[in-house]
Every structure is written in C-alpha cells, then in structure tokens.
Design a protein around this nucleic acid. Structure first.
Length: 135
RNA sequence: ACAGUCGGACGGUCUGUCGCUGGUGAAUGACUUCAUGCGUGGAGCCAUAUCUCGAGAGGAAAGUCCGGACAGCAUAGAGCAUUCCACUUCCGAAAACAGAAGGAGUCCGCAAGGGUUGAGUCAUGCAGAAGAAAACAACCGCCAGCAUCUACCCCUAACCAUGUAUUUUCGUGGAGAAAGGGAAGGUGGCAGGUAAGGGUGAGAAGGUGAGGUAAGAGCUCACCAGGGAUGUGGCGACACAUUCGCUGUGCAUCUUGGAAGCUGCAAGUUCAUGUAAACUGCCGUUAUCAGGGUUGCUCGUCCGAGGCAGAGGGUAGAACGCUAUAAGUAUGGGCCAUAGGUUCAUGGAGCCAGAGGGUGACUUCUGGUCUAGAUAAAUGACAGACGCUUCCCUUCUCGGGGAGUACGGAAUCCGGCUUAUAGUCCGACUGUUUUU
RNA sequence: GGUCCCUUCGUCUAUCGGUUAGGACGAGAGAUUUUCAUUCUCUAAAGAGCAGUUCGAUUCUGCUAGGGACUA
C-alpha cells in the first residue's frame, strides 16, 4: 500500500467555471446529511476519478475564520475517507464531480463532519452503481 | 491596602502521525537540439501519486475612513461651478495626510488626566410651539403736558352753637355754595416720552447693585462677562495692562485662505479558445455641423465620415504584474527610563550575483541577502505534554482534580486613523484610608 | 479584491432640522345582514443600534450591525 493514498492535490479539486456552472445549473442529484448537502454529476472519463468542491455560504457563517475552519474539516474528512467513492468510480470508468454545501449556521465538530461526509460518499457510490446497471 | 489615570510591550511552547502551497537539490519520464562507433552521452526546457532539505497569517492581516507608491487614460488656454480642509508652531528612515510632538482657548473630573475647537460675520435670509414681541414695528402697561369732567377731600365768606368781651372783634367746634384756589382721580380724548414691567423661551437689547429721572434707558458710576484700539511679552495661537459704553442667540447663505485631473492590480500587458464585418430604429456624409476628445458646464481649440441606441452572439482557461535572484542563528554594544523590541558590529557555517584560479570535486576576492505569495483562493487536522488564569480538595509547602485559554485569516505594496480583543508584563503618576 | 447605495408600524412606502411621524394593504373591535362576503366607522402598531453637532435629529456627522447593486 502506497503511503500517499490520503492526498488532495489540485487535480482532485473542481475549479473550472464551466464545470461548476453545469454542476449547479442542470437537474443533478443531491443528498442531504446534516450539516452538509452534496450535489454530484457523472461525466466522461478524465484524468482523475473524482473532483470535489466545497462551498460555505457567507450568509450562514459570517466570519472568514469560521468558514476556513469548516472547509478544512471537510477537506480533512474527505481526504481520509475518499476511497469509498474512488474505488467505485475506478470500476465504472467515469469521473464524478461532487460539491459539498454547508447548510449549518454554526461550526460543527470533526466527528459530525466526518459522519456526514462518509454518508454522502456512500450514497453517491450507490447511486453510481445503480446508474451503471440501468445503462 | 483599596480605587483610578496615562503611555508602552507581549499575545502561547514542545513532541508524534497524516496532509496543503510554492521553492532548492536528486531521481524518473516526455520534448527539442548537438555529438555519434546507432548502443548511447551532453546541454536546454517541461512535468511528477517519487525522495531529501529548509520556509509558510496579524497586532489588528478587519473596517475601507484618510494619504502615498505603482499602472492605464487624459492634460494649449480663459471663465464659472463642484468637493474637501480650517486654533497655533513645528516634524520625518521617500512622500503625503484628517498623522505624531510641543503649545493655546474652552468644557468635564477632588486629582493624575480626558473631551473638544474660533477662518470672517460688514451685508442677506430664516427661526416651529410658547410668548405682547424673535429685533422693523405694533399691543397691554407706566409717565409729565394739553383739553375736559367730578357726586370725593382741604381752605375760605355767609350761617349755627359756645367761650371771652362794653361793642366792633377774636378763639374753638359744627355746617358749607352753582364763586375762587389746591390736591387726587376719571376719559376706549389729543399729541408725545417710554431698551423698567408684560415669565414664554435655547435666545428678550450683556449681567448684578446704586445713583438719576415725570417715567425710563450704559443716561452715570462700581464690579463682572465679551468686543474694538493702543502698549508690553511670545515665532505664533494667545496672555497681561491701559482705554473706548462698543455689546442678543442659533442656522443657512455669503465672503476669505489652502488643496484637488479621472479610474483603480477585476489597474494594465501577453498567449490560447470562440463569435455575427449579420439584424432593427434614429441622426449625418463636401461645407457647415451628426458626433467625439478637451475632468462637471460655457467659450475657445483639435479630430471628423461615420455615429448613437435597441435586441442579441461569443470567451471567461493560462502566464506576467507578484512579492529580492539569494537563510536562520550566537555573542557583544547602542537606543527606547523598564518589559519586550529595534538597530549596529563581529564570528563561523550557508545562499545569490560578478570577477579570478583549478582538468575537476572545488576554491579566492568584492558586493549583497534576514524572505508568505494562494487564485472556487494554501498556511491545516488529530492526539499527548507543558505554560498561564481561576475554582475545589489537602493544607507549611509539595501534590491531586475541574473549568477557561481571546479577537480574528494575507489577496499589489506601504504610512496613519478607527473598531474588536482571554490573559500577562513594564514604566510614570493621582486620590482615599491605616500604621510608623 | 475594488467602488457605491440602502435600513421608518406585520408588509409596501411618504417626509425641506420644528405638530401627537402621513398613506395603502393586512390585524382587532363595532355597525349593516337570517348568516357569510362586500361596504361603512373606530382602534392598536414604526425611525437598525450607540455616540456627537444643535435650543431641538427620522433627517446632519462618526462608529457598529444587517441587507443590496455595479465592476475582468
């Protein structure tokens, strides 16, 4: 096992404006698991199997310090648990764009964030498998 | 001891595991080029699920309230507007400011201290409600004069009573005119004087008291507040003295002096990708005016054959700007009274640039270097220990346990201001109480 | 990041520094009606917060909080 499996480089992040517009514009599937909501979309295979985006609305957490803290917690829990989704995506041979959106008004603990992110990743993986079967 | 004032400094530390950003060196891979004995080797450049090394938020990074650097555009000139500043002197590691320091006036505080600001007001306009009136006047009221009236009061003749006395007369008391005199009063009278009073208000002709007057009035005087002039002191704001009776409050406008070109790193530059030189309406096209530049307007001036508006189409990826090309420490000294910080010098090892030496690893000299540079936006997460504050148990300490450990995250860069901050430290002071 | 703007009854809004802050919709009470609706009458209800300037602040100034627009 390679030591660098829990990583998060720029290639794993979603930063192109077009991709973000299509992710939020069309009717893509979404799940909610407090304190987060996930939106995802399956596209043709590119370099990386999964690309993520984290969004903390300013009108929910006013201070920049709180937003930074929340975003870092999400990044950390995704980094430690991303194998749930990446393995499925590798098998199906497509790229998944997924966005995590904060729907909480206060800063959560690491345990809450980790539970939420794991749940969202599992449900996304299930939906991905189902989507491939229907095809 | 308690309470308080001002100024300044700090604002966690260590270990482990896993990550992020950009960088040095190595390794691997792709491409270009040179050499070639076609096996490869050298150089350049790019990349990374690799390795190594060291770096990575603040005192306010915040608010965006001032000012500057920097960038683009603009800039012959004249006039008029507009905005900002406004007690005074002075200051700088580049400059500027609404900044710092010292000083002045004024208000608050027992005090240490703190807040605040007067450019000018001659002319113009306004001032709700209340009040007679908001400064021009008018009204009520007060007052000497003139006219007129009086049933009231006083004096007096005649008259009555009484006393004295021969009588005239005289004294006392009463009564008393339509005549006379006096005093006082009246009149919705006349023509005047009235900065007292009319109690309301932020403000009522500067305030208080005395004199004065028909009544009053800085009309006069004393004291106090302000202003003008003169003199003295001060660089100055101002202060003090003398003198002049000069004196309502607030706001706006106006006037005076000074300053200001506009936009802001999403400025601006380059590469890549892509589209519509199409459509509709209006104005104009060779001699005067469509339109544009000239900071907001006008004049003037320059350009000028296309311009303006509507409705739409397309891109939004990357690089530069951009964080010096290049590091942290140890010792000693100076400065800020001290805490902490800052600066200078030196030492050895390190890095960068240039020059020189050596076949080469490398080395010598000179100069420099104290470092965040992300871009859907890194600087982190978790665990443990320590430190600090406070509480409880034990109590001489030691020790054990619980709780807390703030405000807040760079976005081109600096100098200020303002606002938010758990806790700690240093210096200079003030007041009260107790003891000596 | 930069440049600007706005906060007034429950909602939408008006206001030249000077009354008891006006209006519409909505709410409540009453009248009309057999009842409901309509209609009519009446009532309650507001200056984002804290300071400053002023005799007096919703209005002017500063700070704080919240909301919005434009800008490659």
């Amino acid at each position: 096992m390679k030591p660098s499996i829990h990583t998060l480089s720029k290639a794993e992040r979603l930063y192109k404006k077009k991709a973000i517009d299509s992710l939020f514009g069309g009717g893509n599937l979404s799940f909610a698991a407090y304190p987060f909501r996930a939106v995802f979309r399956v596209v043709e295979r590119e370099d990386t199997p999964v690309r993520i985006l984290i969004s903390i609305p300013k009108h929910r957490l006013h201070h920049a310090v709180d937003r930074n803290r929340m975003k870092r917690l999400v990044r950390e829990s995704y980094r430690l648990n991303k194998s749930i989704l990446t393995e499925v995506a590798e098998q199906t041979g497509s790229t998944v764009d997924i966005a995590f959106i904060c729907i909480s008004d206060r800063v959560a603990t690491l345990r809450e964030v980790q539970r939420s992110v794991c749940k969202l990743l599992q449900r996304t993986a299930e939906a991905l498998v189902k989507n491939k079967r229907t095809k």
